[in-house]
Amino acid sequence: MRITFRDVSYTYMIGSPFEKKALDAVNLTLSSQTFTGVVGSTGSGKSTLMQLINGLLLPTTGQVQNGDFILHRKSKRKYVKQVRRQVGMVFQYPEHQLFGSTVEEDMLFGPKHLGLDIEKSRQRFPDLLELVGLGEEILPYSPFSLSGGQMRRVAIAGVLATHPKVLILDEPAAGLDPAGHRALLDLLRDWHDQHGLTTVLVTHDMEDAARYADEIVVMDEGKPVISGAPTDVFRQADQLAGLGLDVPASVRVSRAMQAAGWEVADTLLEPEALAGVVIDQLSTVRKEG
């Protein structure tokens, strides 16, 4: 599903002393079936942008088009709910939102809330749990008897159980150990590819943005300031540094090498590949010498 922001502004607490403009006349298109990384420092407007996609917030001015649906300031609740049915959201620390007395009850919450066929949903649970690396035997367990990492995976399986067309992920891997971190993002990227979703990953982690996203949008002071393919975005390292953002280590190392006279392309290379460039050029030097 294609998502388009047209002149969207959002102001919190209008008319109060705490009035704050979080988004300022944003024009942005997220193409259908792309995996977009949204990065920016705290307070840049990332979270507001996300909440406008599924109608948790409605624009103060402008409109957000989500497939055939158009959300604006006066959208009706029933209409907003139809949009929400398409959009799955995984917040930070989703395990904090579990509340059911069993894992199954928790996973049923989404499908029930959206009026999906309960029996059909339930039949998919074993597969979904397997997908996130858990077994169906945990369905009758209390979610609170699980470890933090397991609870996280139950929460994500619950969101996938609603079969969203759009998936919004806000730091879904925060706090997991490195193996769990990689496994979870691999899983979400695979799901995205297999089901043709439109996915938005909000993250502070530039390595993740570089690894998983097709497109990156950099937010600053309520506006998208840089966007494009990861290679193009990270070419602007100095501008990113000015916004308090890092570049991936591959970019730092290859830029330093370029400055020292090595021929390294501006692409995001895996460490083995960049090592390969070094080996190739060393052997050329040797032959010439």
Binding site: P178, R182, A249, S250, V253, P271, E272, L274, A275
Partner: peptide, 11 residues
């Protein structure tokens, strides 16, 4: 143990 090394170490 499935820890990803920092880039410069991996290289």
């Amino acid at each position: 143990r499935n820890f990803t090394l920092p880039y410069f170490l991996e290289m």
